[in-house]
Every structure is written in C-alpha cells, then in structure tokens.
Design a binder for these strands. Structure first.
Lengths: 194, 194, 194, 194
DNA sequence: AATGAATGAGCCTTCATTCAT
DNA sequence: AATGAATGAAGGCTCATTCAT
C-alpha cells in the first residue's frame, strides 16, 4: 500500500515537472529529457511511468477535468441562479485570465486538432461544463429570473467562448478594456437576466 | 518589373506549398524539406526566398490580414447597419466553419503564444476587425437600430469570440445544435438589435 | 527434490517463452522484457534464473543437442545400413524443413560467428552428428552395401550440408523442385549405395 | 558529370565503411554512427546518401551479385565442361573460405529471414548461380563427360551447399580434413564425371 | 536564382542490467 | 524466489540551417 502511494507520488511528480516544462517552452519544444531532468529522474525510468510523451500530455489534459469538476459543483447551486451565475463568471474569468491556463489550453488544443485521443478528452470536459452552465440557465428561466432562451446550451457556449476569449486576449497582450472584465460581465448579464 | 513579378510568384508558390503542409501535418510536424518538396523547389533555393521556417509562417499569418481586409470593407457599409451586421455574421461564420481556417488559426496562435513577432501580427489583424465591427455597432446605435452599449468594442469581441468558438467546435467535432448557426445568430442579434 | 523440480520447470517455462520470441522476432529484436512478458514473469525474477540474455540463447542452443541425440540414436542402428540411412534422410529432411528449425539455426549461427561460447556448442553438436553419420557410412562400407569412400566424414558433411541447404531454401522461399526432397535423396543415395 | 562521379564515390566510400563495420562487429551491433564515423562523414549527411541502415545493407547485398556475375561468366565456358567445373570448384571454394565472405553471408542471411526485400535479393543471385552451374552440368551431360542426372539444378544446389558449408565450417573453426578441400572436390567430381 | 551535400544537435524511445524491497 | 522501479548509454533517424558550386 505504501509502495503504491510512492509510485503515485512519482507519477504526480513527473506530471508536475512536465507541466512546468510545457508552460515554459511549449509541448513541442519540450523534450522528454527536459521532463526527466526537471523531475530529477532518469530518462529510462520516466518510461516506466509513462509510455510516451503524449501519454504525459494526456494525463495533464485529464487533470483539467478536475478543475472543471469544481466549476460544475459551483454551478449546481440552483437556489439563487443569478447569484450563482455571477459567482461563476467571477471564478471562471479569473481562471481564464491565468496565463498558465491559457498557455496550457492552447498547447493542448494545438495537439487536439490532429489527435482524436486528446480532442475527445478536451471535448468531454467542455461538454460537461456547457451542460452544467446550461442547466443553471434553464433553472434561472424556470425561476423567472433569466430571460427565456431558445437554446440554453448555445447561450452557455457563448458565455464560455467570450470568457475564454477575454482571458486569452489578456494573456496575448491585446488591449483589454481598462474596466477589466466588468463590461463583459455586464453585457452577458444584461442579455440573460430579466 | 517582369523579374520582380516572377519572384513574387515563386514566393506565392512556396507559401501555398507551406500552407498545404501546415494544414496537413501541422506547423511543428512540417519540415522545411516537406515544404521544398511540395513546392518542387530545392532546399537551398527555398532559403533564397525565405530566411527561415518561421518567416514562412509569418508570411502566411500576414496573408490572413488580407481576408480580414475584405471583412472590414464589408463592415464599412453603414447605410443599413442591421443588414450589414447580418451579412457579416453570415460571411464570418462561414469562414470560421472552414476546417482549414480553424486549423491554421490554432497553428498560428500556438506559435504566437511564445513569439511576439507572430502574436503582434495576430493582434493587429484582430484589432482591426474589432475596430471595424465596433464601428458598425456604434453607427447602429447612432442610427437608432442597435441598443445602446457601454462598450461597443467589448460587444464586438463577444461576437467574434462566439463565432470563432462556434466554428472551432464544429471542426473539433463537438456536438453542435442541429439548427446550425441560426440560434447563435439570433441570440447575438437579439442582444444587439433594438 | 520437489523444489529443484519446480525451479527446473520455471527455467523450461522461460526457455519456451524465449524460444517463441526468438522465432517470432529474431534474437536481436527480442528484448529481455519481451521474454519476461511472454513467460509471465517479472523482469527481475528472470534474472534470478538466467544471468543474461545470452545465457538464455545458450540454453536454447544446448537444447538442440538433445534433438541431435535422437538422430544419433537412430544412426547407431548398423544392422541394415541402407535402411538406417534412408530413415535418417527422411527424418532429418523433415526436421530441416521446419521453418522454426531453420530460423533458430540462423539466429544461433548469426551469434555464433562472433561468440566462441556459442560456436563451440554449435560445433560440438554438429561434430557428434557428423561422427554418427560417418560411423554409419563406414559400417555400410564394411557391410559391402556402401561404396568405398576416401573420407566418410567428408561425405557425411556433404549429406548434412545439402539437407540443411535444402531445408533453408524451402523456408527462404526459393523455388524448390516439385518432386520435393526425392531428387535430392536419390542423388545422395546413388553416390553412396553400391 | 564530375559532380555525379564524386557522389558515386561518396556512396562507395560509405559502403566500404559500412562493410568494414558489419564484418567487424556484425550488422546489428553496428550503429549508424559507427558507419558515419568510419566513413568520416557526418551522421546527417549519411542520410543524404542512404535513407536507412537497411538500405546500406541492401546495397552491400547487391554488390555480392557482381561477384556472382564473375562466377557465372566462368561457368559459361562449355568448351571443356570438366575443366570448367574443376576451375569453378577451385574458385568458389576459395571464395567460400574467405572469412569476410562467410561472415557477410551470415549477416545478410540473418536479416533475410525476416525481410523479404533482402531475401529476394539473396534468392535472385543464388538462383542465377544455380542456373549457371546447372547449365554447365547439362552441357557436360550432352558432351558425354558428365553422368546423366535426373535434375541438374538439384545437383548444382548440392554442389553449392557443400562448398558453402565447407567454407563456413572452416571459418567457424570446425575440424576440417587436413587434406583441405581436395576430398570434397574428389567426391563431388566422382559423382558427376563419367 | 538554383542545387543538394554537409552539419551535428536534437528527436523519442528501447536496451540489458541492477537493486532495494 | 519474486517484484518492477531505476539507470543511462545507445538505438535509428530528423531537424533547421549553411555552403560550395
């Protein structure tokens, strides 16, 4: 049992090292050796824990799902839809503004375009988030605090796209309104709230 | 003059070959040799036209600006803001649904994250488009056919983000509403039109 | 005693797994891990039974001696030299036509060229077989059913070489006479029998 | 034209280096780097001349065909079949006794077992030699100096097998008759000549 | 402008073997 | 006897780029 724990820790340790490398230099520019070196592990041993470089990326991509899980929990609170929505906007915007998150997002999506295994992972967690957000929108409509929408999922997509876009632009160094995300939030809320 | 034209044609020829490669295998997976082979040009000669692999990508990225130029022209028609907006939504959505466009977008942005030269290019053309769209929104407000918006640029960003996101999802194979882009357009229009 | 038997069984089990691997992928292409996996044994434990990959090959090479032993027993029947010779031709040809035998032969000889330990083993069993066959030839001469030969050992070598060559060609996919080994046997017998 | 010659020389130079390596350490034990170093060429440049390690081996294997060509020329002299046969035995035996030839033979055949491309080459040159030798045997029969044989090709195979076997044994260090190849030649001739 | 030979660092991965448990 | 994590050298091969012609 103790041994199993130690091995899991090793895996986590490697993943952390890999993540640091990917963020620093990008997935393609990171060599397996960089990861091994950073993890202070021998090259060969790395392959005892992960069968390939891609496997490491996949593990990292799956980890994102856990973060999504937290957001989903947040969105599941239907008692006061408006409050929950506002809270979600704040939390998700903050996540999206994190340069690490943005970079990782693009690293992963860059691979996902040509790799079904990765894109499936990516899609799955995105869908979960859309469903949860759409669920809240629907609850808000039922409660009469949100506008009636033809398709809550589509609105959810728009919300996510614009928040993610906002974050990406911030990281890419595009001019962003001085007012920060307030204008964006206001616009979205105005379109949703009664 | 004739000579200059010939050289420009060569460059264009190389760019086309490179573009095909990038779309087919991705920027990182494409070797300079692949490009030369596809352009039916010698490796050494390629370097007579472009100093590096990155230079080729940059040229391609700049070409996107031309496409943006067309959109901007379209957006400059303020006579009937609503009609222009509807037309823009249609045209831009179609562009965003093109798998080639999406792939290229991600290839370029993937490099842009860590390369200021590329990201500047990227930002510049994006800003132009945002400005043009914001201009139309402002004109619409003036004309009284669009809602008053605190910040037209922000709304413009949202429109672009959601359309680009819509296209990306289509290419990545995510479930997309059977109704196509109609729901999305309707939502956006509803939030904008008086 | 029981324990010793168990260990021998393990060794035999490993040897079988290794043999299967060597036949399937070749000695050089087979990794120690492949053997361990096939034997359903751990990598480390394999080293408790064999000190190296070469040791496994050597054990397999030695096993061939046992097969030779059977042939030698067969050849020891001097009562009717012609009948024994005919029987030997039949049995040995069959063995030589076995793709597994041919492949193993070449795998082993391929290593033997540069490894005295292996070539000694190889030579030893070959010499035994030559001696036994030469013994039969000599007995046949004495009995007056075989031609007088200057050097029975040399004739024995020719017989073995041509039979092994015949088998090898069959496995390598060379055109082989439709008549099978009959023509070969007839030629050899004609040169030997009175 | 001059350039073409230079490149051919490079290729030949690399082949020689590779051959030396293969003979010294064996095909599998030789690294591409060993070849490059021996040829005093950079690793990458080697790949400008040969697409893979196997391609180098194949080129070497094809070179053997040239040696076979000489033997075939020799065998084509039907004026005095017995004299030609005796000459062939002498020349071919000498070739087969060359340690380099034997080693190369086994290196190549070792790869040929699992590689059709190589085995095809191997088979082709072998068949040519068999045909040529069978042709001589047939001519000898016609001329009345050789025994009638059911199948000259089969006899040719036996001759080649026993000569190659003789050479291989010599190189592998097996006891060989003090009389050298004379006994072998005598036996073969006795079975063939009238 | 055009060629493709030349460079050598770098790529991901596999290897036989050892060792602590 | 049994496990599989750990080692790091070596495997074949590709890379963007330079250079002599």
């Amino acid at each position: 049992m103790d041994k199993k724990t130690a091995i899991k820790a090793r895996r986590a340790h490697i993943i952390n090292a890999a993540l640091a490398c990917f963020l620093e230099k990008g997935y393609n520019q990171t060599g397996i050796r960089d990861i091994a070196r950073r993890a202070e592990i021998s090259l060969g041993n790395l392959y005892n824990h992960f069968p390939s470089k891609k496997a490491v990326l996949i593990e990292i991509a799956s980890m994102e799902e856990e973060e999504v899980e937290e957001l989903i929990t947040l969105l599941a609170d239907y008692r006061n839809p408006e409050r929950t929505l506002r809270r979600f906007l704040k939390v998700f915007t903050k996540a999206c503004e994190d340069p690490d998150y943005v970079m990782l997002f693009f690293e992963i999506i860059g691979e996902a375009i040509r790799d079904k295994e990765i894109s499936d992972l990516f899609i799955a967690s995105h869908e979960k988030l859309v469903d949860a957000l759409a669920g809240l929108l629907f609850a808000g409509q039922k409660a009469g605090t949100f506008h009636e929408q033809t398709d809550p999922r589509e609105v959810a997509e728009i919300i996510l796209d614009s928040l993610e876009g906002y974050g990406a632009r911030a990281v890419l160094g595009m001019k962003t309104p001085r007012s920060g995300s307030k204008v964006l939030h206001d616009f979205l809320l105005k379109s949703i709230l009664m």
